[in-house]
Protein backbone atom coordinates (compact mmCIF):
# COMPACT_ATOMS: atom_id res chain seq x y z
CA UNK A 1 0.00 0.00 0.00
CA UNK A 2 1.20 3.42 -0.88
CA UNK A 3 1.00 5.70 2.12
CA UNK A 4 0.57 9.45 1.82
CA UNK A 5 3.09 10.04 4.59
CA UNK A 6 5.49 7.58 6.08
CA UNK A 7 8.11 8.12 8.79
CA UNK A 8 10.92 5.59 8.99
CA UNK A 9 13.10 5.81 12.11
CA UNK A 10 12.88 9.59 12.09
CA UNK A 11 14.69 11.47 14.83
CA UNK A 12 14.94 15.24 15.09
CA UNK A 13 17.07 17.21 17.49
CA UNK A 14 17.62 20.92 18.08
CA UNK A 15 21.20 21.09 19.26
CA UNK A 16 21.22 18.91 22.36
CA UNK A 17 17.44 18.77 22.72
CA UNK A 18 15.79 15.76 21.15
CA UNK A 19 12.40 16.72 19.68
CA UNK A 20 11.49 13.41 18.02
CA UNK A 21 12.98 9.99 18.72
CA UNK A 22 12.80 7.04 16.31
CA UNK A 23 9.36 7.75 14.95
CA UNK A 24 7.79 5.11 12.72
CA UNK A 25 4.38 5.96 11.39
CA UNK A 26 2.26 5.36 8.31
CA UNK A 27 -0.52 7.69 7.32
CA UNK A 28 -2.83 6.34 4.59
CA UNK A 29 -4.33 8.57 1.93
CA UNK A 30 -7.68 10.25 2.41
CA UNK A 31 -7.75 9.76 6.12
CA UNK A 32 -7.94 12.11 9.06
CA UNK A 33 -4.99 11.27 11.23
CA UNK A 34 -5.19 12.63 14.76
CA UNK A 35 -2.15 13.42 16.86
CA UNK A 36 -2.61 14.06 20.57
CA UNK A 37 -0.15 14.52 23.38
CA UNK A 38 0.98 16.98 26.03
CA UNK A 39 3.08 20.08 25.35
CA UNK A 40 6.63 19.50 24.19
CA UNK A 41 5.82 16.04 22.85
CA UNK A 42 7.17 16.79 19.36
CA UNK A 43 3.84 17.21 17.57
CA UNK A 44 4.71 20.45 15.78
CA UNK A 45 8.18 19.19 14.90
CA UNK A 46 6.49 16.20 13.31
CA UNK A 47 4.56 18.52 10.97
CA UNK A 48 7.63 20.60 10.16
CA UNK A 49 9.53 17.48 9.16
CA UNK A 50 6.94 16.73 6.48
CA UNK A 51 7.28 19.94 4.45
CA UNK A 52 10.93 20.45 5.34
CA UNK A 53 10.38 23.78 7.07
CA UNK A 54 12.66 22.37 9.77
CA UNK A 55 15.41 23.53 7.43
CA UNK A 56 14.71 27.10 8.49
CA UNK A 57 15.78 26.21 12.02
CA UNK A 58 19.52 26.03 11.61
CA UNK A 59 20.11 23.94 14.71
CA UNK A 60 17.63 21.24 13.65
CA UNK A 61 19.14 17.92 12.64
CA UNK A 62 17.04 15.15 11.11
CA UNK A 63 17.89 11.47 10.66
CA UNK A 64 15.80 8.72 9.14
CA UNK A 65 13.45 8.98 6.18
CA UNK A 66 10.27 10.96 5.72
CA UNK A 67 8.37 9.68 2.71
CA UNK A 68 5.77 11.78 0.94
CA UNK A 69 3.70 9.71 -1.46
CA UNK A 70 6.52 7.17 -1.44
CA UNK A 71 9.26 9.69 -2.17
CA UNK A 72 11.91 10.64 0.37
CA UNK A 73 11.32 14.36 0.97
CA UNK A 74 15.05 14.95 1.26
CA UNK A 75 15.45 13.87 -2.35
CA UNK A 76 12.70 16.12 -3.68
CA UNK A 77 14.65 18.77 -5.50
CA UNK A 78 11.85 21.30 -5.79
CA UNK A 79 11.21 21.85 -2.10
CA UNK A 80 8.76 24.65 -2.96
CA UNK A 81 6.65 22.15 -4.87
CA UNK A 82 6.67 19.89 -1.82
CA UNK A 83 5.52 22.77 0.40
CA UNK A 84 2.69 23.57 -2.00
CA UNK A 85 1.52 19.98 -1.64
CA UNK A 86 1.31 20.46 2.14
CA UNK A 87 -1.02 23.02 3.67
CA UNK A 88 -0.13 24.02 7.21
CA UNK A 89 -2.18 25.89 9.81
CA UNK A 90 -0.37 26.92 12.97
CA UNK A 91 -1.96 27.55 16.36
CA UNK A 92 -1.53 31.32 16.22
CA UNK A 93 -3.53 33.13 13.55
CA UNK A 94 -1.42 34.95 10.98
CA UNK A 95 -3.16 37.31 8.60
CA UNK A 96 -0.64 38.56 6.08
CA UNK A 97 -0.47 42.38 5.77
CA UNK A 98 -2.40 42.47 2.51
CA UNK A 99 -6.05 42.30 1.50
CA UNK A 100 -8.16 39.27 2.37
CA UNK A 101 -8.34 38.47 -1.33
CA UNK A 102 -4.58 38.69 -1.75
CA UNK A 103 -4.03 36.56 1.35
CA UNK A 104 -5.80 33.67 -0.32
CA UNK A 105 -4.54 34.42 -3.84
CA UNK A 106 -0.93 34.58 -2.64
CA UNK A 107 0.02 30.93 -3.03
CA UNK A 108 -1.82 30.40 -6.34
CA UNK A 109 -0.05 33.44 -7.78
CA UNK A 110 3.33 32.09 -6.67
CA UNK A 111 2.59 28.82 -8.42
CA UNK A 112 1.88 30.67 -11.65
CA UNK A 113 -1.90 31.15 -11.73
CA UNK A 114 -2.65 34.64 -13.03
CA UNK A 115 -6.01 34.22 -14.71
CA UNK A 116 -8.39 36.54 -12.91
CA UNK A 117 -11.43 34.27 -13.03
CA UNK A 118 -9.42 31.26 -11.91
CA UNK A 119 -7.96 33.16 -8.97
CA UNK A 120 -11.37 34.42 -7.95
CA UNK A 121 -12.80 30.91 -8.02
CA UNK A 122 -10.00 29.68 -5.76
CA UNK A 123 -10.46 32.56 -3.31
CA UNK A 124 -14.21 32.03 -3.05
CA UNK A 125 -13.91 28.26 -2.69
CA UNK A 126 -11.22 28.42 0.00
CA UNK A 127 -12.97 31.10 2.02
CA UNK A 128 -16.17 29.06 1.89
CA UNK A 129 -14.39 25.91 3.01
CA UNK A 130 -12.83 27.82 5.89
CA UNK A 131 -16.28 29.12 6.92
CA UNK A 132 -15.16 32.72 6.48
CA UNK A 133 -16.89 33.65 3.22
CA UNK A 134 -20.17 34.90 4.66
CA UNK A 135 -18.37 37.24 7.03
CA UNK A 136 -15.98 38.81 4.52
CA UNK A 137 -17.60 38.52 1.10
CA UNK A 138 -18.45 42.24 1.06
CA UNK A 139 -14.99 43.43 2.10
CA UNK A 140 -12.45 41.28 0.36
CA UNK A 141 -10.16 44.31 -0.04
CA UNK A 142 -9.87 44.80 3.72
CA UNK A 143 -6.51 44.07 5.31
CA UNK A 144 -6.25 40.48 6.52
CA UNK A 145 -4.47 41.70 9.64
CA UNK A 146 -7.50 43.78 10.67
CA UNK A 147 -9.74 40.74 11.08
CA UNK A 148 -10.45 39.36 14.55
CA UNK A 149 -8.29 36.54 15.88
CA UNK A 150 -10.78 33.82 15.04
CA UNK A 151 -11.36 35.24 11.57
CA UNK A 152 -7.63 35.45 10.93
CA UNK A 153 -7.33 31.82 11.93
CA UNK A 154 -9.96 30.85 9.37
CA UNK A 155 -8.15 33.04 6.84
CA UNK A 156 -5.05 30.98 7.61
CA UNK A 157 -7.02 27.82 6.92
CA UNK A 158 -8.28 29.30 3.63
CA UNK A 159 -4.67 30.07 2.68
CA UNK A 160 -3.57 26.54 3.52
CA UNK A 161 -6.25 25.23 1.18
CA UNK A 162 -5.50 27.75 -1.57
CA UNK A 163 -2.66 25.77 -3.09
CA UNK A 164 -4.76 22.59 -3.33
CA UNK A 165 -2.57 20.52 -1.03
CA UNK A 166 -2.50 16.72 -0.89
CA UNK A 167 -1.92 16.91 2.84
CA UNK A 168 -3.49 19.42 5.21
CA UNK A 169 -1.71 19.79 8.54
CA UNK A 170 -3.78 21.46 11.24
CA UNK A 171 -1.83 22.34 14.36
CA UNK A 172 -4.42 23.11 17.05
CA UNK A 173 -6.40 25.09 14.50
CA UNK A 174 -9.38 25.70 16.78
CA UNK A 175 -7.64 27.51 19.65
CA UNK A 176 -8.80 30.96 18.51
CA UNK A 177 -12.12 29.91 16.97
CA UNK A 178 -15.49 29.82 18.69
CA UNK A 179 -17.09 26.39 19.31
CA UNK A 180 -19.93 26.83 16.81
CA UNK A 181 -17.62 27.74 13.94
CA UNK A 182 -15.24 25.00 15.02
CA UNK A 183 -17.99 22.43 14.59
CA UNK A 184 -18.77 23.80 11.12
CA UNK A 185 -15.12 23.57 10.11
CA UNK A 186 -14.98 20.03 11.47
CA UNK A 187 -17.83 19.14 9.12
CA UNK A 188 -15.85 20.62 6.23
CA UNK A 189 -12.81 18.60 7.21
CA UNK A 190 -14.81 15.39 6.97
CA UNK A 191 -15.91 16.43 3.48
CA UNK A 192 -12.36 17.38 2.48
CA UNK A 193 -11.16 13.89 3.35
CA UNK A 194 -12.12 12.69 -0.11
CA UNK A 195 -9.70 15.20 -1.63
CA UNK A 196 -6.77 15.12 0.75
CA UNK A 197 -5.13 13.58 3.77
CA UNK A 198 -5.58 15.57 6.95
CA UNK A 199 -3.22 15.50 9.90
CA UNK A 200 -4.95 16.94 12.92
CA UNK A 201 -2.78 17.90 15.88
CA UNK A 202 -5.04 18.82 18.72
CA UNK A 203 -5.12 19.45 22.44
CA UNK A 204 -8.81 18.69 22.50
CA UNK A 205 -8.77 14.90 22.70
CA UNK A 206 -12.49 14.81 21.98
CA UNK A 207 -11.87 16.59 18.69
CA UNK A 208 -9.52 13.80 17.68
CA UNK A 209 -12.10 11.26 18.80
CA UNK A 210 -14.82 12.94 16.73
CA UNK A 211 -12.80 13.29 13.54
CA UNK A 212 -9.82 11.02 13.33
CA UNK A 213 -9.76 7.62 11.66
CA UNK A 214 -6.50 6.83 13.39
CA UNK A 215 -4.97 8.55 16.36
CA UNK A 216 -1.37 8.69 17.53
CA UNK A 217 -0.32 9.58 21.05
CA UNK A 218 2.98 11.39 21.41
CA UNK A 219 4.76 11.91 24.70
CA UNK A 220 8.26 13.19 25.49
CA UNK A 221 9.45 13.10 21.85
CA UNK A 222 8.29 9.54 21.39
CA UNK A 223 5.39 7.88 19.68
CA UNK A 224 3.71 6.00 22.51
CA UNK A 225 0.91 4.39 20.58
CA UNK A 226 -0.91 4.60 17.29
CA UNK A 227 -4.07 2.84 16.24
CA UNK A 228 -7.71 3.16 15.20
CA UNK A 229 -9.22 6.07 17.10
CA UNK A 230 -11.88 3.99 18.83
CA UNK A 231 -9.24 1.63 20.15
CA UNK A 232 -7.01 4.42 21.38
CA UNK A 233 -9.88 5.96 23.27
CA UNK A 234 -11.45 2.81 24.68
CA UNK A 235 -8.85 0.11 25.05
CA UNK A 236 -5.35 1.40 24.37
CA UNK A 237 -2.42 -0.94 24.87
CA UNK A 238 -0.40 1.56 26.82
CA UNK A 239 -1.31 2.78 30.28
CA UNK A 240 0.03 6.29 29.51
CA UNK A 241 -2.33 6.58 26.56
CA UNK A 242 -5.22 5.47 28.70
CA UNK A 243 -4.38 8.03 31.37
CA UNK A 244 -4.09 10.79 28.79
CA UNK A 245 -7.34 10.18 26.94
CA UNK A 246 -9.26 9.76 30.19
CA UNK A 247 -7.78 12.97 31.58
CA UNK A 248 -5.86 11.23 34.33
CA UNK A 249 -2.47 12.23 32.99
CA UNK A 250 -0.01 13.98 35.25
Amino acid sequence: MNYQIEFRDVSVSYGKDVALRDINIQIPKNEIFGIIGPANAGKTTFLKAINRTLEFIHSAKTTGEVLFDGKNVKQIRNVYGLRRKVGVVFPLPVGLPMSIYENVAYAPRRSGIHDKQELEDIVVRCLQQAMLWDEVKDRLDMLGTKLSGGQQQRLTIARALSHSPDVLCLDEFSIAIDPVTTMKIEDVLVELKSEMTIILVTNLVQQARRLADQTAFFNKSELVEVGPTEKIFTSPDNQLTYDYVTGDFG
Partner: peptide, 25 residues
Protein backbone atom coordinates in the same frame (compact mmCIF):
# COMPACT_ATOMS: atom_id res chain seq x y z
CA UNK B 1 8.78 36.33 11.64
CA UNK B 2 5.34 34.68 11.48
CA UNK B 3 4.64 36.44 8.14
CA UNK B 4 7.73 34.84 6.62
CA UNK B 5 6.93 31.41 8.04
CA UNK B 6 3.40 31.62 6.64
CA UNK B 7 4.75 32.36 3.16
CA UNK B 8 7.43 29.69 3.30
CA UNK B 9 4.79 27.15 4.27
CA UNK B 10 2.85 28.06 1.14
CA UNK B 11 5.86 27.25 -1.02
CA UNK B 12 7.14 30.80 -1.52
CA UNK B 13 10.89 31.17 -1.92
CA UNK B 14 12.83 33.39 0.43
CA UNK B 15 13.15 36.09 -2.20
CA UNK B 16 9.44 35.95 -3.10
CA UNK B 17 8.67 36.37 0.59
CA UNK B 18 11.06 39.30 0.88
CA UNK B 19 9.71 40.97 -2.26
CA UNK B 20 6.02 40.53 -1.47
CA UNK B 21 5.87 40.80 2.32
CA UNK B 22 9.07 41.90 4.00
CA UNK B 23 10.24 44.81 1.83
CA UNK B 24 6.82 46.46 1.28
CA UNK B 25 6.34 46.53 5.05
Amino acid sequence: MSFRVACWNMGATKWQTIRTIVLPN
